[in-house]
Write a protein that binds this DNA or RNA. Structure first.
Lengths: 191, 191
DNA sequence: GACTATGTGGACGCAGGCGTCCACTTAGCT
DNA sequence: AGCTAAGTGGACGCCTGCGTCCACATAGTC
């Protein structure tokens, strides 16, 4: 939707914009959304004014920076939907989503943000969740997904998964995979 | 262990100390360990100097403030150990611990803290974990606890559970209970 | 009631984040 | 090459949190 900019920027401005986005992606991913705007500017090698001129709010910057993740997230769910076995698809989605969110702390923050005055990507989230709902419906009917599963369960698990970001990076990846395994077990329907 | 203070304080100082601890408990519980020292001082109706004189570091203040939770946490596990059915005891521990940690954000922070220069309550944690290990061993042998369960799984789940604190208070409690339910299911041994 | 050691609040200086303003630079056009 | 509007970095003022210092207050003792 933001494929073409309304008006052309001067070439140096365009370069700066690109570098800002690049830095923002890197820092949002590793530090989360709390990273200071100035840190992004510094890493991009520009002054604060340049950053604020291009992206007046962190929200705007993040929306742009996460365009790729947003697409990746949707792609994961679509791929899960395309799998012949819906339960297998569901598990695959859980695993891959955990992986994606682990690599990108800021994206998780944005994906889960519901408090006001915070970066949010509500639009893309709603789309993705709609697809997950479809997948879940199928996995209940023709798979081993527990019948009382609700979308909010997934949000709870993602919210919880974000909590893992505080642990040290070395163990984080292991913890995330184990978490995904346990979550899948938790979603299996009762005996 | 810190039952009696080494030397008696002046009566007004004693009062202030009590009020500081009371405020610290309330604020740590609701805001977590990140609450500014000054906020605690303000709520207690004392100046910063008074607070710092009594508790030079947040670590010392927190250790004192959480003495009660520390005991409660141990008591929960002991009670779980005393139950005839170890699996039932294990589930009970999970539920109650989630509940305790939900009510007290700061306590969770301290309980899980492993990064340096942070409030930690390592001593009590190790004791509690030792008891949980015993309970888990029994629940594997004579219960439905999955055979590959490790203590780190519990830490992963508690770390994740802390993530729920970011959601709004109204839904938090529901989310926590649902989380506990799902976690127990996750820990059931395979078919 | 007077004395003194203990205890106290407010002020201080430091650090770091915020968003904006402004004098200088420079891309892009002629 | 010269012009000009777009673009820029650094400086600025504001805020909030930090831990410490010191002149004043007061509990406990005589």
């Amino acid at each position: 939707m933001t494929e073409q900019l309304p008006q052309k920027l001067r070439s140096d401005a365009e370069d700066n914009r690109d570098r800002i986005l690049e830095s923002a992606r890197a820092l949002f991913a590793s530090e989360g959304l709390t990273v200071p705007m100035r840190a992004i500017a510094r890493q991009a090698g520009v002054g604060p004014a340049t950053l604020y001129r291009r992206f007046p709010t962190k929200q705007l910057l993040a929306t742009e920076a996460f365009a790729e993740q947003t697409r990746a997230c949707q792609a994961i769910v679509d791929e899960g939907l395309a799998m012949p076995d819906p339960w297998q698809g569901f598990c695959w989605v859980i695993e891959r989503i955990c992986e994606l969110h682990l690599q990108n702390r800021g994206f998780t923050d944005a994906f889960l943000a519901t408090y006001p005055d915070t970066v949010d990507i509500a639009e893309s989230r709603e789309l993705t969740l709609k697809s997950v709902a479809t997948l879940a419906r199928r996995a209940k009917a023709r798979g081993r997904l527990r019948k009382d599963f609700e979308l909010s369960d997934l949000m709870i698990m993602l919210t919880a998964h974000r909590g893992l970001h505080v642990s040290d990076p070395a163990t984080r990846s292991t913890a995330s995979r184990r978490f995904a395994t346990l979550v899948m077990q938790a979603f299996v329907s009762g005996p």
